[in-house]
Amino acid sequence: MIAQYVADGVVSGALVGLGAIGLTLTYAVLGFANFAQGEFLTWGAYFALALLSGTGLGHAAALPPFAFGWPLLLVLPAAVALTGGLAVALDHVLFRPLRRRAGPMGLVIASFGASLALANLVVLLFGPKPRYFSRAIAFAIPVAPGVRLTADRMLVVALALLAMAALHLLLTRSRLGLAMRASAENPALAAVYGVDAEGVRRASWWIGGGMSALAGVLLGQTEQIQPLMGADLLLSLFAAAILGGIGSAGGAFVGGLVVGLAEALSVPLLGAAYRPAAAFLVLFAVLMLRPTGLFGERP
């Protein structure tokens, strides 16, 4: 019984973790909390949906044991790229002009406005009703004593881990990752070292938007697609990013897992009514013990 809650918590936590990476990267490199991060999940899912229906591929048969057909795998990278592009475009028209004039608070308020605009644009374009990638029914498979998961949800965890490993390699091994970590520590010094700050910002938006889009598509496949799917997750994303130590990508992912587990386990332990508060109880407890989060840099 508890084992099933743990498994469910890991699946939803992996999605929260993927979504929170963008939040933490934006904070580290651009220095503000982006309230529109949730909308990148939403837009990722709707980009995939639009591509599926636009190309007429949405009706392909499911690929057993999964409840989706091969076209979803085809449009997934496109949706990730489009959402990364959306994040870069949003930076270009909104955040970049503001960076020169407004402080971090101005950027936060602007992101709040962007969040509302992006969510409403989805309603305008796709309607308010929930949508689905496919009507196929996902069957839960026993994976351990007392634990049943659909193949789709197992794939969520596998893809999330894969994306996380790729991001870790990028941040630790590549020149871009080095430049991103340097810019997060001291942007002015990064320029002295020859780092183009604008390029690093652009890369952060691509990665953060893309990771969120991946989470959005996977969430859309395992739950449903609806205009507030990302906004509904925003508080969990913040909890995960802060829990992991703001600015740490790996921390945000682990933070997401902790949040997912806390939310899932709160149901049998505290009662379903406490589920929305569970992440904050954990957040509160961790920050009391470690004010910089689990993996945050000590000041």
Binding site: R175, L178, A179, R181, A182, E185, N186, A188, L189, A190, A191, V192, Y193, G194, V195, D196, A197, E297
Partner: peptide, 30 residues
């Protein structure tokens, strides 16, 4: 600023002139 190095201008600031969180090797490679 970020193009000056390639043009032949080196600059060492008075304070905070290395990245404390990057390793020595990473500072140089960057």
């Amino acid at each position: 600023t970020h193009r000056l190095g390639a043009l032949g201008l080196g600059y060492v600031p008075q304070v905070a002139n290395v990245f404390a969180r990057l390793t020595v090797a990473e500072n140089l490679v960057l």
